[in-house]
């Protein structure tokens, strides 16, 4: 990698290490593919939560064992009323649906509108390719 970038091994390691401690790199390591590991039921669970409660529910959902991602996103009314997104991976559809029912009970969400969007075909999955501005780079990150 250093050779490709024209940088020394030491600089590459130090840069990655700094990006990691600064939080730019969230984690560095082996990136697995859920589907190939037998987690075939991948569901996006979306909720329509009152704006003043979205942070609370977002934090509650994040603390749940099987919730792997949890984001607030904008509503686009009337087509899209949901403002809280969470991702669940399970080995089967039944397992995921039973888990969603448990979540609704546990977090008292029976009056909160939600939908479960299972994934069907995967057309593409790869790491983000960050397209770079040639000039402004290194220094700011390395500083």
């Amino acid at each position: 990698m250093g050779e490709q970038l024209g940088l020394s091994e030491e600089t590459v390691i130090e840069t990655l290490s700094q990006m990691q401690s600064a939080g730019i790199i969230r984690r560095l390591g082996v990136i697995v593919r859920h589907h190939e590991l037998g987690y075939r039921a991948n569901a996006m669970l979306v909720w329509d939560v009152p704006d003043d409660q979205v942070d609370t529910l977002g934090q509650q959902l994040s603390a749940e064992q099987k919730v792997t991602l949890c984001y607030q996103r904008p509503r686009i009314k009337p087509r899209w009323p949901y403002n809280l997104f969470s991702m669940i991976h399970g080995k089967s559809r039944d397992e995921v649906m039973a888990y969603v029912d448990d979540l609704v009970d546990k977090l008292a969400l029976k009056d909160t509108p939600y939908e479960v969007l299972f994934s069907l075909q995967r057309f593409k999955q790869c790491g983000a390719k960050y397209i770079v501005q040639e000039n402004a780079h290194q220094q700011a990150v390395l500083r």
Partner: peptide, 9 residues
């Protein structure tokens, strides 16, 4: 089973 070894930003 593994897509790559690298960073998640």
């Amino acid at each position: 089973k593994v897509s790559r070894v690298g960073p998640v930003f």
